[in-house]
Computed example of a mutant assay.
Amino acid sequence: MEKLYQLSDSYNAIWLETSQLYEAWARQRGISFYELLVILSITEADGKVLQKDICQRFTIPKQTVNTVIKTLIRKGWLELEVSEQDRRSRNLCLTAEGRENTAQIVQELQNHEAQVWLQLGLDRAEHLIEYTALYNRYFREVSDKNARS
C-alpha cells in the first residue's frame, strides 16, 4: 500500500508542476493563469462563450472567472453581448484588439507545446494522453463506486 501512496504523491507533484509551468508561461506574457484559461476558452469557441461554460470546463469558481472578465474588459480585449439563446446571459466576445492579442498568445502557446510534443516524440506523447485518460476514467469509476457504497 505504501508504494501506491508514493505513486499518488509522485503523480500529484507532476500534475502540480505542470500547472505551475503553465502559470509561469502565462505570467511571462503579462497575463495570469486564469486569464490564459479564459482566453483559450473564448478563442476555441470562435470568440463567443458564456461565463458558466468556462466555469464548468475548467472547474473555476464563478467569482474568479468574473474577475478575469473584468480585467480583460479593462484591457479592451473583451466585451459583453446579450445572448440570443438566453437574454439574461452575456456572451464574452473578443474586441478587435482582443482578437489580435489573444491570437498571438494562443499561437505562442501552440508553438511552445508543439516543441514539447516533438521532444517527447509521437509515440510517448500518444501514450501520455492515453494513460492520463485511462487514469481519469478509473478515478471517475472508483469515485462513482464509492458514492454508491
Rank of each mutant, 00 (worst) to 15 (best):
M1F: 11
M1V: 05
E2F: 11
L4E: 11
Y5S: 02
Y5D: 05
L7N: 08
S8M: 02
S10Q: 00
Y11D: 02
A13H: 10
A13C: 01
L16E: 11
E17A: 09
T18F: 03
S19M: 13
Q20T: 06
Q20E: 09
L21I: 02
A24Q: 13
W25G: 01
W25I: 10
R29D: 09
G30H: 07
I31K: 08
F33N: 06
Y34C: 09
E35M: 04
L36W: 15
V38M: 07
L40S: 04
E44L: 12
A45V: 03
A45L: 00
D46Q: 02
G47M: 05
G47T: 02
G47S: 02
L50Q: 10
L50S: 05
Q51C: 04
K52C: 00
C55M: 03
C55R: 02
F58L: 01
F58I: 10
I60Y: 02
Q63N: 06
T64V: 07
V65P: 03
I69H: 11
K70T: 12
K70V: 13
K70Y: 09
K70A: 14
L72W: 13
I73G: 01
I73Q: 08
K75S: 12
E79I: 13
L80Q: 12
E81H: 15
V82W: 11
V82Q: 08
S83A: 03
E84M: 14
E84K: 15
Q85T: 07
R88I: 01
R90M: 07
L92C: 05
L92D: 03
C93F: 04
L94I: 01
A96L: 01
A96M: 00
G98Y: 07
R99W: 00
R99T: 05
E100Y: 12
A103K: 06
Q104L: 02
Q104I: 05
I105Q: 11
I105E: 08
I105S: 07
E108Q: 08
L109K: 07
N111P: 00
E113N: 06
A114H: 06
Q115D: 02
V116N: 05
V116D: 02
W117G: 00
L118G: 00
Q119L: 15
A125G: 01
H127Y: 11
L128R: 07
I129D: 06
E130P: 09
T132H: 00
A133Y: 08
A133S: 14
L134E: 01
Y135G: 06
Y135P: 08
N136E: 14
N136R: 14
Y138P: 04
F139C: 13
E141P: 11
D144H: 12
D144S: 15
K145E: 15
K145R: 14
A147R: 10
A147C: 13
S149E: 10
